[in-house]
Design a protein around this nucleic acid. Sequence first.
DNA 1: TCCTAGCTTAGACTCTGTCTAAACAAAGAT
DNA 2: ATCTTTGTTTAGACAGAGTCTAAGCTAGGA
Lengths: 138, 138
Amino acid sequence: MSDLVTRLRRHNWRITPQRRVIAETLEGSHVHFTADEILERACERMPELSRATVYNTLNEMVALGEVLELNLEGRSKRYDPNADHEHHHLICEGCGQMKDVHTVGDPLDWLPGDERHGFAVTRASVTYRGLCPDCRES
Amino acid sequence: MSDLVTRLRRHNWRITPQRRVIAETLEGSHVHFTADEILERACERMPELSRATVYNTLNEMVALGEVLELNLEGRSKRYDPNADHEHHHLICEGCGQMKDVHTVGDPLDWLPGDERHGFAVTRASVTYRGLCPDCRES
DNA sequence: TCCTAGCTTAGACTCTGTCTAAACAAAGAT
DNA sequence: ATCTTTGTTTAGACAGAGTCTAAGCTAGGA
């Protein structure tokens, strides 16, 4: 069973067939999909699934804190099911692929107090960019 | 005179009245505007300015490397005229305002070699999130 | 069984951003 | 001064991503 579904159930969130298919599609890949890519893949298992349900479900999972919404390249958001593990992203500027990475230490420690402008800073995310091995060659 | 205009002129880029108004609007504020916010403000000085020109001009300034395009919260991109200074961003999760901040040290140093997956990593950007002083109170 | 609350659906709609074709402007050639 | 060429601006049509709405559906409780 999908680990994401387990985490969602803990919030007393009703797991309908639609929501299960969406959660499993999201978790089943190590790539971070857009909403439309999730719709497309989920429709292979449940053809009558609607676009609105995919958007509703993704937004609710984000609101529950179990899925991360990524607003990186291009016009569409991508969704990352590993909201519970502290991690960051590495993007290839050639082909657009994205990998999860981990930093040494906590980026919050790298923002000195006089740079915080009185904010209560709670989160930090780092995006690295470069060229993947394939794109370096060509 | 606007510093951004000076930098743009160095690229042998024609500074038309429209482009000047857009550049000065962009640079005149410490907030990072969306394209439509820039259009709205620039139209106060040049009412016949068209939306297409604002988008064209912003995209060209980004291509010249003199303006940064930020894809953070919400549906629209924001534009940052300080492309030449290494800096990162702090966003208020309450009201959405955004400030420029500086880290101690270089974020590229926080990504160990075995986390690079063979990429040639060239850039890193850090986004901090939290609540600004006003939003903390309410 | 009936009610209620919540979930799903199709499709209309909104918002950002891009594209196109035509009008316009500036600089150099004649 | 006029013409030509090249690049710029414009309005409006278009496209993609995401939201909203109203109606129908489903599951669980009285």
